[in-house]
Design a protein around this nucleic acid. Structure first.
Lengths: 217, 217
DNA sequence: AAATAAAACAGTAAAATACCCCAATTTTTA
DNA sequence: TAAAAATTGGGGTATTTTACTGTTTTATTT
């Protein structure tokens, strides 16, 4: 916990490429020392059981094949309560987040955050004992934040989703239930897209979507 | 393409952390030069449209929020055919793999491969023009064996004429007058084509026509 | 010329689409 | 904190598309 001693870190992730990449990234940050990496939760467990050097912090992938992040986190909390686990996940699933925190995770990060935030959160967890964004969802939404399309037409995520479904023989009613929306809302998406794309029939939507390669046949 | 000049690489992935990690990893490999990274397909498109330095190879995430890998790959193939795209994905989904390859990807890699394989595949794509793992090859073979391009559908001249007009925002009434026919006759053409093509909406006609290149966008 | 096939045309009804009106929430912005 | 914007949802209606039932005309073949 001293200021000068580097923070000892382990990384657990079953995506080999990500694991090695992240190891490089974290290692390159001063004061961070990646002492070991593992492809799966039980490898970490085995490593610790053998009495090897314990890390200060574990970066823990949530979804793993053999022993997942939740189980691993729970085991670490039970057997090495001084080790702080920081969850890394691809997406925000409320239920998973809660389970992970209940299992003792000191934070929950999305894998698409900026490296600076990772650095900051590791430091926060190490010094303060925890780090979590006030609202993971809002952080996610902010990072997603819409930008311009190549022909000046800005399409939102949900609009693209609708557009893709419109390029099928589904009726709007079917699209509505597929998107868990009321047919009226679909009506709005249709009208908004008619306006943005400047067309007046569903055929126009389809032609645009294919032309712009939003859907590939 | 000279032996000594480094391979220029762009990376497109909307998982920021993965993107930056991978950038570090790839950059650290000798002869690889990551000239730019992007969070989304359309950022790459914008970059290229602005006339910036084109890469030799693009590492392309398949699932992205705004402009996904398939769409991006198709655009690159269309506009910068000399750039070779290498798909990166979390999982193998037969349909996705096929679409990606159809869109012009020179290879399809899983994100949990060993970094050495990534290095090897980039080199292969650069020198030989492609790199397929056995996994992908077998997927490809599976799809090929059960495939007949033209399902014996013979369209008459007048039907093709109608089909082309159906791929527009014209109403059937307008198509009728354009073809100098009664709307009722158009009704017949429509029904005959529904039967021949095996679909049940005008959208189906449009999708078929474009797929079979009866109409070119 | 008669038989046959095809192309063109017709009425009706039901479903889907398109186009208006508007409002309750939530989120973002000022 | 209030205003503005975005999201989702609603009612009603006109038009278009789709699904049937057919008949008439035109062209080809025998």
């Amino acid at each position: 916990m001293e200021k000068n001693s580097p923070i000892k870190i382990c990384i657990v992730d079953d995506h080999r490429l990500f694991l090695d990449s992240l190891k490089g990234l974290v290692s390159s940050i001063s004061n961070f020392n990646v002492i070991e990496v593992f492809n799966d939760g039980d490898e970490l467990v085995t490593y610790l059981k053998e009495g090897n050097e314990a890390p200060d912090i574990v970066l823990l992938d949530v979804k793993m094949k053999r022993m997942d992040g939740i189980a691993t986190c729970a085991w670490v909390k039970e057997n090495y309560p001084e080790i702080k686990a920081l969850a890394l996940s691809m997406e925000v699933d409320e239920d998973t987040v809660l389970k992970m925190l209940r299992a003792g995770a000191k934070g929950y990060l999305l894998k698409d955050i900026h490296p600076n935030i990772l650095e900051h959160s590791i430091n926060e967890v190490h010094t303060k004992g925890f780090y979590y964004t006030e609202n993971i969802t809002s952080t996610l939404l902010n990072s997603i934040d819409g930008k311009k399309s190549h022909d000046g037409v800005e399409l939102k995520e949900r609009e693209i989703e609708f557009l893709k479904l419109a390029c099928s023989e589904r009726t709007y009613k079917e699209i509505a239930s597929e998107m868990c929306l009321s047919p009226r809302t679909i009506d709005n998406y249709r009208e908004i897209l008619f306006q943005k794309i400047n067309c007046k029939t569903r055929i126009g939507l389809v032609l645009y979507a294919i032309k712009e390669k939003i859907v590939i046949l």
